[in-house]
Amino acid sequence: MGDSVKKPGWKDIPIGGRIEDAGNSQKYYVGGWRTRRPVWIKENCIHCLFCWVACPDAAIVVEDGKIQGFDYDHCKGCGICARECPAKSPAIQMRSENIEDQFDS
């Protein structure tokens, strides 16, 4: 998580605090914040995209209008997607990130 590379000096960065690499927060991983992870159950999914439009972290991958799964580097595990999923058999399940809990279940 975060950056481990040596930080640049004042001669090597743009002036005024400008950030010129738009959207580079994607290089910053917040997946480690999770205590629970959403797991996609593909066969239940009706690709309504309700989960996608509700995710605060842009962590649900959509291609050609179809869900592809989760971006676990940026999903914080809030569980909103699971609550919004309207599929008859839920297509998103929240599971504990704790390894032992996973064995229990």
């Binding site: 927060s25 917040v30 605060p56 999903c75 914080k76 809030c78």
Partner: peptide, 10 residues
């Protein structure tokens, strides 16, 4: 608007 921001979960 991209992921990797630091808003609280949810």
């Amino acid at each position: 608007f991209c992921g990797g921001h630091r808003l609280c979960p949810g």
